[in-house]
Amino acid sequence: MGSKLKNAGSSDQQPFFHIALQEGFNKDEVHIEHNDKSIYQKNTVTSDLRIGLADSLEVPQLAGQNTIKFILPKKRIEQSITFQYSSTVYLAVSLVGDELRVLVSDGAFGYL
């Protein structure tokens, strides 16, 4: 997990989700859906141990309810988290054993 930064990255006009796949991934297949629409699919997601980050993406928020669903099919893991349209949200997702841990923050993460 990195440091929380204020408003790093995209503009303040359009709130978005910044999703960081952080620690514990090792050649894992990861799918991410946003309101049932696939926004990310990679087969070999691997954490960079030097900085504790595997991959990251940003997706604009939609009006109303936003559900982000994380799926690791080979590990039979599915986890969803729902937000109402609001300001930019930062999600840090780590794989700990057989479960995903999602940390929600209003500040960006930093890595060292």
Partner: peptide
């Protein structure tokens, strides 16, 4: 190139 979220790195891998 990763942007302001990376403060430092041992890059020589």
């Amino acid at each position: 190139e990763q942007g302001p979220s990376l403060g430092g790195i041992m890059f020589d891998d």
